[in-house]
Design a binder for these strands. Structure first.
Lengths: 215, 215
DNA sequence: CATGCTTGGATAGTGACACTCTCCAAGGAA
DNA sequence: TTCCTTGGAGAGTGTCACTATCCAAGCATG
């Protein structure tokens, strides 16, 4: 199919597809003549993934490119490939200035990983983007005077552990490593809004039960 | 204290504080002379909250203004005030075009609320931003061919329920309704990055355990 | 073969957003 | 009196995801 048809079938404007091609989020089509290129189902599939990651997952385009590169990197073993892909997922820049709250938050995060027995996290953690995000968020809570000690966060960490098990169960339903890595990225990103919106709905429900009719 | 000192104590540049004043994220200081205004601890506290919501919680400035207005609205009862505040929290625009996947996603969401027995959600749900986010995300998963049926999402919803209980427990540790509403907003927003980063760390851990050493 | 449309590629422009810079007049301090 | 600081207002900046405009080379029709 040509660009126009790819656009029609995916619902993405041609100008946007051209932009994605330029940014290397989509591999170039197979050149037929000097002025036309042919696209296949793999392009359509990739285009849908890109759209989902960028629009629903709100991932920056540059980040998406890196993640997709990791997904396709056949030179890594399975765990490393998963790791590289998820590693590249969007994250806030780590703690910038070393405020005193940051140091405390770092210690809290470390103790948390200890208490949970997350070996890999303890080893690789401090360098990983997710660890930086965690430290940042804990430091922000501390600055506002909200609970941020290990005891307060531990329940959330246990719940996160349950989530990860559910996620990996879903991933393992796929056969090939390539499918699994793609599923890991898609599900990691796209289940975030699902989870957050469900939490908001659940909070409304719980608030209704507890406070309904209060003055 | 004057603007310069407020800036120094909060670490926020004066130009940015002026911007927040202009955007009504901060109430104006008490005018002392024609050219000077006095700010108090409440301004410092509010400024820190704004910074946390905007920078860590990545909330748009316009949204933050609405949320803070709801937090301060004394005319609502407690549950409504919480609801109004969380209602105004940032959310994607609801489902735009009515693709077939959207209709399916909507049915899945409704059935989910039924199965969970979330009365309030069933009643108010379809109008709420969180419901729109959920439908959007489920539709995106469907478009990519990933599981999005009630059975696949149910575990996540149950976990969200646990999160909400933990959240409201934290909120109820505060005494006055005003403190509780502010805590609800702050914790709803600031625990999101905590939760998401913990999920990423947990996924890395779980992936390490399952796939370590795979070819 | 001439005419006009389509295609893909390159370049520049748009709109939203969170700041950030530059002025300015009125005070206050030395 | 002179200089510096303050708060307010308007315009400018940088980023980012597009999006509109050009352009040359085909292809399709009369």
């Amino acid at each position: 199919m040509r660009l126009a048809e790819l656009s029609e079938r995916s619902g993405v404007p041609t100008a946007t597809i051209k932009y994605y091609l330029r940014e290397r989020l989509l591999p170039p089509g197979e050149r037929i003549t000097a002025t036309t290129a042919e696209y296949g189902d793999s392009h359509l599939r990739r285009l849908r993934l890109v759209r989902a990651l960028v629009q629903v997952g709100k991932m920056p385009v540059a980040t998406t490119r890196e993640v997709l590169a990791a997904v396709e990197d056949e030179s890594l073993d399975h765990h490393m490939r998963l790791g590289a892909a998820v590693w590249a997922l969007p994250h806030d820049p780590g703690p910038a200035q070393e405020a005193p709250e940051t140091a405390t938050a770092r210690r809290t995060a470390d103790e948390l990983l200890h208490r949970l027995g997350w070996q890999y996290g303890l080893e690789m953690g401090p360098a990983s983007p997710a660890y930086g995000m965690l430290v940042n968020a804990l430091a922000a809570l501390a600055r506002l005077g909200y609970p941020h000690a290990v005891e307060s966060v531990l329940p959330y960490a246990r719940i996160a552990g349950e989530l990860a098990v559910a996620d990996l169960d879903l991933v393992e339903e796929y056969e090939t490593p390539a499918e699994q890595v793609e599923a890991a990225v898609a599900l990691t990103v796209l289940l975030e809004p699902v989870l957050l919106s469900l939490r908001r709905l659940a909070e409304a429900e719980e608030s209704y039960r507890r406070f309904r009719g209060d003055a």
